[in-house]
Write a protein that binds this DNA or RNA. Structure first.
Lengths: 340, 340
DNA sequence: GTGAAAGCGCTAACAA
DNA sequence: TTGTTAGCGCTTTCAC
C-alpha cells in the first residue's frame, strides 16, 4: 500500500506538502496540489488511519457495547448511533457482552487498547457500580443506568412508560394485573415497577403484592417464575405486564405452554417489541421505545464530550418518551389495523 | 495512559525488555520480568494496539460487511464469525452496507484505511464483478456469491435447498406452485430458481412460466409484484415459495393484504426465517440456513488466508446443507410441535 | 539477558 | 508556500 512518502516522490514535492493537501488544514499552491492529487489517483492511495491515530492520539472511533445483538431492540439502537456517528465523521465498532459483566469488562479493556475515543454502553446486568467512568474515557450509558451514579445517559422515562401500560390495562377493566420484571438491581427495572405502583395508586386500586414477580434475564428462569404464577386458575391474574423484551418472550412462551392464549385467557402487554414484524399473531401490545433515537442522542452527547474534552461538568440525562402500541394481546381491537 | 517507556522507567529496565516481557517472544530474566509485571499492575497498563499495528503492519482485526443488521439472518452470521474470530485472537468490526453497492465500496475503502487484515463480505446486491478481490486484501464471500468469479466462499447449497422446499410442497399435493425470487443478478437467487425447476423436472410436473415471479430487495416492489400474482382468484397459485427472507416478508404481507390467509388459502414456504421466534402465528415453514456456521466457517477460511499469506492458490468453496423446518404455513401439522 | 536505536506512516511545528 | 524534522508507542534487530 502506498504511503505519503511515495506520493511525495511521485509528485515531486515534500511529504509535508502531501500531508497538507490531504488534511486541507494548511493552504497549498495550486500546482503542487494538482500533482499530489494526481499521484493519489495513480497510486490509489488510501490514508493509513493507524498511523494517523498514533500521531494525533484520536481514532475517530467509538465503541458501542450491547448485551445481545439478536434482540431486535439493540440493532435499532446501533443503527441510530451509527448514523449519528457517520454524520460527524466517526466510526462505530460494535461489541457484544452476551449479558456477562466479565465479558463486558474485557470488551472495555479491549476498546481502550484500541484507543476508541469514547464508548456507548448498555450494561450487561446490574453492576453495583458503573463499569466505566467518564473521567477515564468518555462514556454515555444507554437504556440501562447504573443506580445512584452521576453519568451521561439516555433512556426512556421508564416510570411513565410502565404507568402508561398499566393504565391501559386498568382502563380495559383489569384489576388482577401481574407484573413480571427483570433483575431489580437494574434501575430501569425498578423504575418500571414503580410505574406499575403509581398507576394503581392514581386509580385507587390496591396493589396485590403477590402479583409482583421478578426474575433474571435468563429465559428459563423467567419461564419458571412465570409458570408458577400462572399455575392455579383461581388465583391467576387476568392480565400480565412484563418490563422488558426478554421477560416478555419468556412470559408469552409460558402462557402458551400453560395452554392459555392471549388475549382470551389473559391480557398481555410488554415493554419492547418482541419481533420487529407486525404480521404475526398474536400481535403484541407493547411499550415501544424510540430505539434509534436513544442511539443517536447518545452518540451526539458522546461526540460532544469527546470534542470539547469536557470530562467534568454536569452530566446530561436525557429522558425520552415511550409510546404505547395497542395491538391485539391486550384485548381490544380499537380499530381495523391499517398496516395489514 | 501509560506507555512501555513509563513502565521501563518504573521497573528500572529498558523499554525493549518491557516489550519482550509483554510479547513473550524473547526470554527475559526472572527478576526483570517480575519488576515489569509489577509496574504493569501499578500503572494499570493497557497496550496501545494502534502503535503495535503500525509497527507490525497487522491489526488482528477483520471487517464483516452485511447488508442489513436488522434482518435476523445477519446477526446470526455475525455471531458465528465473531466467536470463530475470538478463538483465534482476532477482532471483528461490523459494518452495514444498507443494500447499497456505493456504500459497500465506501465501507471497503474505510476498512482498508483501517488496515483490517481481511474482510468477510455479504454483498449488497448483484454487482457485475466482485467488489473486492483477494489478491488485494483477503476476502471471503458469504451467502451471496459474485457470479462467475473464483473467490473463497461459504454458502448453502442453494439449489438443493430450494428443491427441498418445492418437493415438500409437491408432496403436499400442490401443482400450481409460484416462486418469487429476489434479483436474479445474484447467483444464489438464480440457483434457488434452478432448484425450483429441478424439483418439478424430477417429479415430472410441468413448470408454468407464468408462476415464476422475480423482484428486487425492495419491500414495496416485492409486494407489488406479489399482489399482482395473487390478484385473480382463478389463476391464483395454491402455493407460494419465496427465495429469501425479505421476499418472504413482502409475500406474507401481500397475502394478508389480499385478505388471504396461510395455509388455508395458499400454502407458503420461504427461504430463511422471518422471525427468530417460534411463538407467533402463522408459524412459517422455512428453509433454515446454518447462519452461525456460515459465519464461523467463513472466518476460519479468512484467518487461514491471513496467516498463511496465501493470496493465490485454489479458492475454497464451502457448501453447507440447509434444513427444512416444516411448520404450519405449508399446510400440515405433521405432529404436535414440541417447542410450545 | 539486556539496552540502544531504527523506523512503521503520519501530523505539526518550525524554518526557509 | 514549501521542505525538514521530531516523535506518537511499539517491535525488532543488533551489539554488548
Amino acid at each position: 500500500m502506498p504511503t505519503q512518502k511515495e506520493l511525495a516522490k511521485l509528485a515531486g514535492v515534500s511529504s509535508g506538502t502531501v500531508s497538507n493537501v490531504i488534511s486541507g488544514s494548511v493552504p497549498v499552491g495550486e500546482r503542487s496540489r494538482e500533482k499530489v492529487l494526481k499521484a493519489i489517483r495513480e497510486l490509489n492511495y488510501q490514508p493509513n488511519l493507524i498511523a494517523r491515530s498514533l500521531r494525533t492520539n484520536r481514532t475517530h472511533t467509538v465503541g458501542i457495547i450491547v448485551p445481545d445483538i439478536t434482540i431486535p431492540f439493540f440493532p435499532k439502537v446501533i443503527r441510530g448511533a451509527e448514523s449519528a456517528a457517520r454524520e460527524r465523521g466517526y466510526f462505530v465498532v460494535v461489541a457484544e457482552s452476551e449479558g456477562s459483566s466479565e465479558r463486558e469488562a474485557e470488551l472495555i479493556a479491549l476498546l481502550r487498547s484500541q484507543r476508541v475515543d469514547g464508548i456507548l454502553l448498555i450494561v450487561a446486568a446490574g453492576a453495583k457500580r458503573p463499569p466505566l467512568s467518564s473521567s477515564d474515557l468518555p462514556v454515555v450509558y444507554l437504556d440501562r443506568l447504573p443506580d445512584g451514579f452521576e453519568v451521561d445517559s439516555v433512556c426512556v422515562d421508564d416510570r411513565a412508560a410502565a404507568e402508561m401500560g398499566i393504565v391501559h390495562l386498568l382502563s380495559m377493566g383489569h384489576r388482577r394485573i401481574a407484573i413480571l420484571t427483570g433483575p431489580l438491581t437494574l434501575k430501569n427495572e425498578q423504575e418500571r415497577l414503580r410505574g406499575y405502583r403509581q398507576a394503581f395508586k392514581k386509580s385507587g386500586v390496591p396493589v396485590q403484592e403477590s402479583l409482583i414477580w421478578s426474575s433474571s434475564f435468563n429465559l428459563e428462569e423467567v419461564m419458571s417464575v412465570c409458570q408458577k404464577g400462572l399455575l392455579k386458575p383461581r388465583n391467576r391474574p387476568t392480565a400480565l405486564f412484563t418490563t422488558n423484551g426478554l421477560s416478555g418472550m419468556g412470559a408469552l412462551r409460558s402462557i402458551i405452554a400453560s395452554g392459555l392464549s392471549t388475549p382470551r385467557d389473559i391480557a398481555f402487554v410488554t415493554f419492547d417489541e418482541l419481533t420487529s414484524e407486525d404480521i404475526f399473531r398474536p400481535a403484541i401490545t407493547s411499550i415501544v421505545q424510540p430505539a434509534s433515537e436513544i442511539g443517536s442522542r447518545g452518540m451526539e452527547i458522546l461526540i460532544d464530550r469527546i470534542n470539547t474534552g469536557s470530562v467534568t461538568g454536569p452530566r446530561k440525562k436525557i429522558r425520552l418518551p415511550a409510546m404505547l402500541a395497542v395491538r391485539e394481546s391486550s384485548g381490544v381491537m380499537l380499530q381495523k389495523r391499517k398496516t395489514l
